[in-house]
């Protein structure tokens, strides 16, 4: 049983999040302003904090800063502010993720699960160090000996083609490859008009490994240049 603090000045939103997360088997602590949140954080052993930014008295940013002074619990920021500037600011003060309102409940649950898994299974995942047969970036792990892909500890089913593309990109994580480069490296032959097929495969991979394929964490698209696996 993991403990999660949900803090938002809108009671209905807190209630809705509670319903979703309780279904997943989490214990929920509720707070409606920054002060209450800090009280609970100090008194309770928590595994995750969900924080709204715009709150009366103490805002979410200040709460996050205070938490980060002595605690390493994951923080997910939840805000109506969707500007890049706001996201960067939130992540800079120590938040682990940033979700914009109005959010997709499924996405919220997925992100919470991901953060919890990462936080609680930190040791065991880290044990799986990169070796000849294992390629990883963040929580994306490819075990080449088992031909297995896991994200946040969850097994992902991919087709052999998708697997080959993913393996190639993860092996060379951080580097950008154009469609024809990917084709030539994976198929080891020259590409003739196969461009669209690669683009379609990449999209399918993204839909499988990303929580929100439109805002990918691992498989990034650099439009007009190519694709890469982010080095996390």
């Amino acid at each position: 049983m993991y403990n999660i603090l949900v803090c938002d000045d809108d009671k209905e939103i807190v209630k809705a999040i509670e319903i979703y997360l309780e279904k997943e088997g989490y214990k929920i602590y509720k707070a409606y302003n920054g002060k209450e949140a800090l009280d609970i954080i100090n008194k309770t052993e928590l595994h995750l904090v969900i924080l709204d930014i715009m709150m009366p008295e103490i805002d979410g940013i200040s709460v996050a800063e205070t938490v980060r002074e002595d605690k390493a619990i994951p923080i997910i920021m939840l805000s109506a502010k969707s500007e890049d500037y706001d996201k960067i600011k939130g992540l800079n003060v120590g938040a682990d993720d940033y979700i914009t309102k109005p959010f997709n409940p499924m996405e919220l649950v997925a992100r919470v699960n991901s953060q919890i898994r990462r936080y609680t299974k930190l040791g065991s995942i880290n044990a799986k160090e990169e070796s000849d047969n294992i390629y990883k970036s963040g929580e994306l792990i490819i075990d080449d000996s088992k031909k297995e892909v896991t994200v946040d500890g969850k097994n992902i089913k991919v087709t052999p083609t998708e697997y080959n593309i993913l393996k190639f990109l993860t092996k060379n994580k951080g580097k950008v490859f154009s469609i024809s480069q990917i084709y030539e490296n994976v198929w080891e032959e020259e590409s003739y008009g196969a461009e669209n097929i690669i683009a379609v495969h990449i999209r399918h991979i993204r839909e499988k490994i990303e929580i929100n394929p439109r805002e990918p964490k691992y498989l990034k698209v650099i439009w007009g240049i190519g694709y890469k696996i982010e080095n996390i």
Binding site: D10, E12, I13, A16, I17, Y20, A80, K101, P102, P105
Partner: peptide, 9 residues
């Protein structure tokens, strides 16, 4: 967006 979040949820 805040009330809309509730509506959607």
């Amino acid at each position: 967006k805040t009330p809309l979040t509730s509506i959607i949820n």
